[in-house]
């Protein structure tokens, strides 16, 4: 839990840093020119999916059987929304997941609630709804496989997966 809150805090900090340093217009065109060589598509390229995944942060976590967004989750999604607004060519699928404590079909429905909570937040921050799909995996795709809360807490998630650029 400690580790987790640190990760979240770091994620939040980097989001804030990203907001402070890169207003959306700076991301366009020659915005990458300032700090040496940036390999396009690499995590150091602020327009890359890898940057979105690793620096902005692609996931929010949920409490047991809940789909309401925590303050950390909202901060994370705020960062995602800003990135998506700055990179309008991308569309995303939000994947909702549950931990293994629950029946298969209930967890499918719960994962859908979580994905939708993240989607609604992104829409409320200005991202067009037609850029955001959702899918629920229920408890079918855990990322952590131990059967204790440390793993469960990471599996109760909504992950924003960039599914490609609308411009190809």
């Amino acid at each position: 839990m400690n580790v987790l809150s640190k990760v979240l805090a770091l994620g939040a900090l980097s989001v804030i840093a990203a907001c402070a340093n890169n207003d959306p217009s700076a991301l366009g065109g020659g915005g990458a020119g300032g700090t040496g060589a940036i390999v396009p598509g690499s995590p150091s390229d602020p327009r890359s999916p890898a940057y979105f995944q690793q620096t902005v942060g692609d996931r929010v976590l949920f409490a047991v059987d809940q789909s309401t967004l925590s303050p950390q989750g909202q901060t994370m999604l705020q960062g995602q929304a800003e990135w998506l607004l700055a990179n309008p060519d991308f569309v995303a699928t939000i994947e909702g997941h549950a931990d293994e404590q629950g029946t298969r079909e209930y967890n499918l429905a719960l994962g859908a609630r979580r994905a939708n909570a993240a989607r609604e937040y992104l829409i409320s921050r200005g991202v067009a709804g037609n850029r955001l799909n959702t899918v629920s995996y229920g408890k079918e795709r855990p990322i952590e496989i131990c059967s204790v809360e440390e793993c469960y807490s990471k599996n109760r998630r909504a992950v924003t997966v960039l599914t490609g650029s609308t411009l190809g």
Binding site: S67, E105, L108, A109, A112, R113, A115, N116, A117, R119, E120, T134, S136
Partner: peptide
């Protein structure tokens, strides 16, 4: 079950 807008 049908999921619409996150609701089942």
């Amino acid at each position: 079950s049908l999921i619409q807008g996150g609701n089942t």
